[in-house]
Simulated assay, not measured.
Amino acid sequence: MAKTWIRREVEIPNHMALARLEKCPELGPKLLFFSGGTALKRSSARLVNYTHNSIHVITPFDSGGSSAEIRRAFNMPAVGDIRNRLMALADQSLRGNPEIFALFAHRLPKGEEQEPLRHDLDQMVRGRHELVARIPDPMRKIVRNHLAMFQQNMPEDFDLNGASIGNLVLAGGYLANRRHLDPVIFMFSNLVQVRGTVRPVVNKNLHLAAELADGALIIGQHRLTGKETARLTSPITRLYLSDDTGRAVDQPIRDKMRTLIQGAELICYPMGSFHSSVLANLLPRGVGQAVAGAACSKIYVPSTGDDPECLGLSVADQVERLGQVLMADAPGIRLSDVLHFVLVDTAHGHYPGGLDLARIRNLGVEVIDCPLIGYGPSPDIDDRFLVPILLSLA
């Protein structure tokens, strides 16, 4: 079978193409997102109206909150961001799905003694807690079984304060499936009719480590974001995967992940925490080669507003760093192999480090400048604008 590149002019957004996709989303394009946290949550929920084939490569390196306690107890990857994306892509119109969503979004109270928290968990395992009782079978039985597996293996000193029930369910499923995430994701994707594919970039218990310009070494994703600890006061100069001691780990992606990336019809590096959400996904060995080998458009959507991880970085700096991480994967990869477009809104977007559009264009990357910010006080990129643009480029 012969392959060739075709250059075409695209209307952004292409309303005719969007109307066709809305009528038949099960045949929609394979848009692949390298993302981690909640920045893409609303866009993911809107995306299912146009395609059921989007691919979401998720970082499993979160080291804060409920995820940290689960990882400490079971030596496993973080599942919180996976849970969030599964729920964002679930078909909320199906019977039982809103109930599953409510349970997965529920957290046990903070600041409580362990005994009442363990009682709440036990009530869920027994099916007597209202959030579990209203879930229809067979989902209720599966949820109870996974929570029971978690409960049976939970260490005596496990702290349930603020625990995400969805994370506990997925952790129980992980333990029940011989410490494999794929079967758990597959099962819940089918149960709640997830309209897309969600996968961790790697299935290993690894951490993010960062070297700062002042010589400091930061270990742990939660220490980079400024959400649970003090904000960074020195720019990040190097980001890498590590064990819990900070020793660098060379972790390759699996063939399954390589196939997903190379089969994409558009690759998007979306808004979100630049280092801990976007770049983190690009660090495992093989990602850069897979992206370079994908015959599709590749686009970066920089965040608007404040990103504590981008201290001292303009959007042009971010573009260079994104390219450096991907090109370092193997000799011969060029920036033009891994990035074609940068999507910005110069009229309404706020980019604290500046844009430097001329420098971006000098790198050979095309700038698409169009409305991205919604009406109102929020500085965030509006999914009503972003999703149609991405679909029009696929």
Rank of each mutant, 00 (worst) to 15 (best):
C310G: 06
C310W: 12
H348M: 14
L339K: 00
T304S: 13
Q318G: 00
V315F: 01
G305S: 15
H350W: 10
I333V: 13
A290H: 05
S303R: 13
Q324C: 06
E309D: 10
R384V: 08
A347T: 15
V278D: 10
E366C: 08
P302S: 10
E309T: 10
K298R: 14
G293W: 06
S303A: 15
P284W: 08
P331N: 14
L283K: 06
D345T: 08
C370T: 15
Y375A: 15
E366D: 15
A330H: 10
L363D: 06
Y300S: 11
S314V: 04
L311M: 12
G323P: 01
D345G: 08
V344S: 00
C370P: 09
R384S: 12
V325K: 02
A290Q: 04
I299D: 05
E320P: 08
H340D: 07
L355A: 05
P302I: 12
A294M: 08
G364V: 07
V325W: 03
L279C: 11
R334L: 15
S303L: 14
G323N: 03
R361A: 02
S336A: 13
E320R: 12
G305A: 15
A280T: 11
I381A: 07
S303V: 12
L335H: 00
C310F: 11
I333L: 09
D345M: 05
E320H: 12
C370N: 11
P331K: 14
V287R: 13
G286F: 02
D329C: 09
R334S: 14
K298C: 06
G354R: 04
I299P: 06
G305I: 11
D306W: 11
I373C: 15
L357E: 09
G312Q: 12
D356I: 00
K298A: 07
Q324H: 14
R321T: 12
D317P: 07
T346R: 00
D369A: 03
L311D: 06
D369S: 04
Q289R: 15
F341M: 02
L326Y: 05
D380E: 15
H340W: 02
R321P: 07
A316G: 02
E309H: 07
V338A: 01
V291Q: 14
C310N: 07
I333E: 05
N362A: 11
A347F: 04
V287N: 09
D369R: 01
L355I: 09
Q318V: 00
R285N: 11
G305M: 09
G286R: 03
G374H: 07
E320N: 14
P379F: 05
Q318D: 00
V344E: 00
G305K: 08
C310L: 14
R361H: 04
G376A: 10
G374F: 06
L357C: 07
R334D: 14
D383A: 14
C310I: 13
I381M: 11
